[in-house]
């Protein structure tokens, strides 16, 4: 039973990481990455590493997510500015 859950969790980890890497839209990729961070916290709990699970939940999913979303905001404004300056690129 435990092994089954581990395999399922490992698959979910790989799937969310794949989506975070493969999605071309950075906004969806960041959201997928936050999901990946939360799944990582679960994986740490399964690996009997509660210390890391605590840190990962607060840092990996929380702080990194906030930082990346803020980076996304900057990117959007920059993109708009560029489009205004150069028109759309060929």
């Amino acid at each position: 039973m435990g092994i089954l859950f581990d395999l399922l969790l490992a698959f979910a980890l790989l799937w969310s990481a794949w989506r975070a890497i493969a999605l071309t839209d950075p906004a969806s990729a960041v959201v997928q990455f936050i999901v990946f961070g939360l799944l990582m916290a679960l994986a740490w709990a399964r690996l009997r590493a509660p210390d890391i699970a605590l840190a990962e939940a607060a840092i990996g999913a929380g702080l990194t997510g906030a930082l990346l979303l803020d980076g996304l905001g900057t990117l959007r404004t920059g993109q708009r500015q560029r489009d205004e300056q150069h028109g759309s690129r060929p």
């Binding site: 509660p50 210390d51 605590l54 840190a55 607060a58 840092i59 929380g62 702080l63 906030a66």
Partner: peptide, 29 residues
């Protein structure tokens, strides 16, 4: 609590600091 708990169970300076930082980010947002 996490800081105090670190001496004898999961917890410690890192987790406590992460929670404090998250609180600051929440306040800022």
């Amino acid at each position: 609590y996490l800081l105090w708990a670190g001496a004898h169970r999961p917890g410690g300076a890192f987790q406590a600091a992460a929670v404090l930082a998250a609180a600051a980010v929440l306040l800022h947002l």
